[in-house]
Amino acid sequence: MSSARGAPEPDDPVGYFLEDLTYHGKTDRTRAAYERVLRRFEAFLDGTEPASATHRDCMAFVHSLRGDVADSTVATYAAYLHRFYGYMTEVGAFDGNPMTLVMEEMDETVDKDPARRDVSIPAMRSFLAGIRHPLHRALVVTLLKTGMRVGELCNLDLRDFSVTDPDLEAAYALGDRPALSGRPDSIFVTADATVGEELNGEVRTAANKRKRGTVIPVDDELHRALKAWLAVRPDSPSPAEPLFVGTAEGWGERLRPQAVRHVVERYAREEGWYRTGGGADENVTPHYFRHFFTTHLRDRTGDRGVVKYLRGDVADDVIDTYTHNWGDQVREVYEANVYRLLP
C-alpha cells in the first residue's frame, strides 16, 4: 500500500472504493455489481491483500472465470477490477494497477465478441448509400469515422471542428479550441462534458466518458458529410453553437442521444439490422458503430495504441505519447488505414 503523505490507507479497500462510488453518484445497482465482482476477487486471493496482488494474481482470477461465465461477462468483471485498481492508484492508496497489462493482453481474446453481428465494409457502404438526409448521414458517418460515443457526438460544438475549407471558414466560427491549434481537419472530443453542468455557455444533458480530451483526424469523407450538413444546419439559440441540432422537433436545439438512437434504429430496421427485442449482439445501434470502428481500424493498423487513443480509453502516459506526436503517430496512421465508406 502506498505510503505517500496524505494517502488513504483503508483497512477495507473494496469498501473504501464502494463508498466513493456512492459519493460520485453511482446507482445502488452499479455499486452492487462492483461489490459482487470485487468481493469475489478478494475471496479468490485467499488472504492476499488486494494492494499486494500482482498482475499474475489478476490474470489467474480472470482465467478462473473462463468457462464459468460468458466471455462478455469475463470482460465486464475485468473492467470492474481495472477500474478499482485504477481508482485506488489515483487516490494514492495503491502503488500501481496490476490490471493494466492484463487488459492489454485481453484485447485479443475477450474483447472480440464472436456472437456480435459482423458487418463488412462493403455492407456498411451499401447501408450509408441509403441515407440521404444530410443530418442523418453526417451523424452516422461521424460515428463510423471517429468511434466516439453517442453522448460525445451530441456534445460537439462548432468550435470542436477544425477544417481547411474556405466556404465553411467564411460561414462559421470553427475550430477555436486551443487543442486544435496547428491541427487542421480535426475534431476535438472533450472530457469535460458532465450532465447538469454548464460547458461553453450551455448546461449539458449528456456526459462524455473520456478521462482526457482527444483530437481525432477528419478525412475527406467525413469532411464532405459535415459540409453537406452545415450547408443546411438551422441556426441554434444556444451560445455553445452545437454542431448537430434538430431539423424537426426541437428545431435548432442540440440533438440528444435518444434522437440519434432513433435515427440509427430507423435505417437499421430498413436494412434488417434491428429487431425489437434483439440484443446488442444482433441490433445495429450507435454503440455498434464504435465496435465497427475499433474492429476494422485495429485489424487494418495492427496498432492498438493509436486505436485506443482515438477511442479515448488509454492511460495518461499512453495518451500523452500520442498527443505530443499527434501528426506522426495518429494522423498518418489513421489516414493510411481508415476505411472508405462513401462513393
Rank of each mutant, 00 (worst) to 15 (best):
A4N: 02
G6W: 04
V14R: 00
F17R: 01
H24I: 01
R29N: 09
E35K: 12
R36C: 10
L38I: 11
F41Y: 15
E42I: 14
T48M: 09
P50L: 00
P50V: 01
A51S: 15
H55P: 00
C58R: 07
F61G: 08
H63G: 04
S64F: 04
L65E: 05
A79N: 03
F84M: 10
F84S: 05
G86R: 15
D95L: 07
M99Q: 02
M99W: 10
E105Y: 03
D107P: 01
K112V: 05
A115M: 02
R116A: 14
R116L: 13
D118C: 03
M124C: 12
H133Q: 13
L143N: 11
L144I: 04
M148Y: 12
M148R: 08
L158I: 07
F161M: 13
S162Y: 04
T164A: 05
D165Q: 11
D167R: 11
A170E: 14
A170D: 12
R177G: 04
P184L: 06
F188H: 13
F188V: 14
A191R: 08
A193H: 11
A193D: 10
E197F: 04
N200L: 09
E202M: 05
T205C: 01
T214C: 11
T214E: 01
L222H: 08
A225T: 09
L230E: 06
A231E: 14
S236P: 06
A240K: 05
A240G: 13
E249Q: 13
V263S: 01
E270S: 10
G277P: 07
G279R: 03
D281G: 05
E282N: 01
T285M: 02
P286L: 02
H291N: 08
T294M: 03
T295L: 07
H296S: 13
R300K: 15
R300W: 03
D316E: 15
D317G: 04
T323K: 13
A336Q: 11
P343I: 08
